[in-house]
């Protein structure tokens, strides 16, 4: 309980808005560069790594909600808030076990997080949206369906096509940031010892 209070200190609160803004800004840079990834949770992963799983979860959750308020898009955001929360949470868990201390562990942690994200997104897509996400990715889903696969499985596989890679790269970027930050800034965060 004490650790939780320490995690949600003023630094964490000041960090979350900036992390969310980074999520959005980087997501837009990626879109502008027309790279076929999302990379819209780098901020969330960072928060999870340096402030712990619960703060990471809150960051992910609020990120999706704010995204809806900013862009007026409630469909691709709010329903997937639990997934974003899980990503932040897992980043914190991996951080706690020191996986951000080496680059390949960070990448692996990201890949695992991506798989979990796909697992969690699939039922949301299935039950709320009838199995579609409203992008070209639905072609993949259609292809799987034409092979006789169940909709839920098709959604899951469609997610697997991008999420693990996307999250692996996100975790790697966060690893690089942590390496590059001067020690005095790392000290500020509650989970500093786990990630240094």
């Amino acid at each position: 309980m004490e650790k939780l209070k320490r995690d949600f200190n003023t630094i964490a609160l000041a960090m979350i808005p900036i992390a969310i803004a980074i999520n959005i800004a980087v997501g837009q840079i990626v879109k502008a560069l027309r790279i076929p990834l999302y990379l819209d949770s780098i901020g969330t992963v960072f928060v999870g790594a340096v402030a712990g799983p619960w703060v990471g979860a809150v960051a992910g959750l609020l990120s999706n909600i704010v995204w809806a308020f900013i862009f007026g898009d409630v469909t691709n955001t709010v329903p997937y808030a639990p997934v974003a929360a899980a990503i932040g949470f897992l980043a914190g868990v991996f951080g706690k076990y020191g996986w951000f201390k080496s680059w390949w562990k960070a990448v692996l942690g990201g890949a695992i997080t991506g798989v979990v994200a796909s697992l969690l997104s699939a039922p949301i897509t299935f039950y709320l949206f009838g199995g579609v996400v409203g992008t070209g990715m639905d072609v993949i889903t259609a292809a799987f369906r034409s092979q006789g696969m169940s909709m839920l499985a098709a959604n899951f596989l469609q997610g697997l096509a991008t999420d693990p890679l996307d999250k692996a790269i996100s975790f790697l970027v966060v690893y690089l940031i942590i390496r590059t930050l001067p020690d005095r800034y790392i000290d500020r965060f509650s989970r500093a010892d786990d990630i240094r």
């Binding site: 979350i16 808005p17 969310i20 803004a21 959005i24 609020l62 909600i65 704010v66 308020f69 900013i70």
Partner: peptide, 9 residues
């Protein structure tokens, strides 16, 4: 958090 995020974005 929500309001300050809206303004700094």
């Amino acid at each position: 958090v929500i309001l300050s995020t809206l303004q700094i974005i």
